[in-house]
Design a protein around this nucleic acid. Structure first.
Length: 255
DNA sequence: AAAGATCTCAACCGCAACGGC
DNA sequence: TGCCGTTGCGGTTGAGATCTT
């Protein structure tokens, strides 16, 4: 391992972490909690930069991190979310319990992306004229809300309706809550029409619909709280995404 | 069995966003 | 309002593992 020298002459360790370093970092986070990463190396007695500490915790040491192969459902979800969000790995990973952004990114780069490139190559090898497909991804603004959301919705069932906008919530009533498929999308009244529904249905078109497991709720004015299944995230927050209207979704829907 | 090729994934780097002053 | 420190993200790298010849 190659140490680097800091401005004050101390050498910072780089490269693979040792079990001892892991223990020190774990103990530090357990004692002080996550955050204040600039203090972590000193608190933990580690000769590592704060970035390295954070990365090690987030990608490896954090509890409930799932290891091993991705399941079919997970891959399917990644594909769909990538179609919607592009390379927003942290947002995608946030929808897949136990998987980190790095995991998802690595899986995409090693398993999914090469496959799609291969398919592209194969199709271009055919004599068929290439169909020109442009893919545009949306850049949703993540909106973190506290896990009191459900309570708020009980108190105020209109919470998902923002002024003139209609809300669109994708739900999962799966008791296991394997995946949080709850999205909040603010759609303008101009896209609150069949085209909008068609686009989003198309995005998730082949998910099995069993006994109302999954579905789209177009919130005219009210969405009942119990219809929303907002899964609590590891950090105790639920997340919705707010899509600015000017984004490409609107473009696509108005196409 | 050994050497080279390929794959996997942990870790690093650079940068943009954010918040405090 | 601009500066500066901190945080978090996405792209990239490279060491070790695995596969192929």
């Amino acid at each position: 391992m190659k140490p680097i020298t800091t401005t004050h002459g101390l050498e910072l360790r780089k490269g693979a972490w040792t079990p001892h370093e892991d223990t020190l970092l774990k103990q530090c986070i357990e004692k002080y909690g996550e955050g204040k990463w600039h203090l972590v190396p000193h608190r933990a007695g580690l000769n590592r930069c704060r970035k390295s500490c954070r990365l090690r915790w987030v990608n490896y040491l954090r509890p409930n991190i799932k290891r091993g192969n991705f399941g079919e459902d997970e891959v399917d979800l990644i594909l769909r979310l990538h179609k919607l969000l592009g390379n927003r790995w942290s947002l995608i990973a946030g929808r897949i319990p136990g998987r980190t952004a790095n995991d998802v990114k690595n899986y995409w780069n090693t398993n999914i992306h090469p496959r799609s490139k291969q398919q592209k190559k194969e199709s271009s090898d055919d004599d068929k004229p290439m169909q020109h497909i442009t893919t545009t991804v949306t850049k949703p603004k993540p909106l973190a809300i506290t896990n009191t959301l459900n309570q708020c919705m009980d108190d105020n069932p209109q919470i998902m309706t923002h002024g003139e906008c209609s809300s669109l919530i994708r739900t999962s009533n799966d008791d296991d809550n394997n995946f949080d498929l709850s999205f909040g999308l603010n759609l303008s009244p101009t896209v609150h029409d069949d085209k909008g529904k068609e686009y989003l249905d198309d995005l998730f078109d082949d998910i099995e619909m069993e006994d109302g497991d999954y579905g789209w709720l177009f919130g005219g004015s009210t969405v009942a709280g119990e219809e929303l299944n907002v899964v609590e995230q590891e950090d105790g927050q639920n997340q919705l995404f707010e899509f600015p209207l000017m984004d490409e979704v609107a473009w696509k829907l108005n196409d």
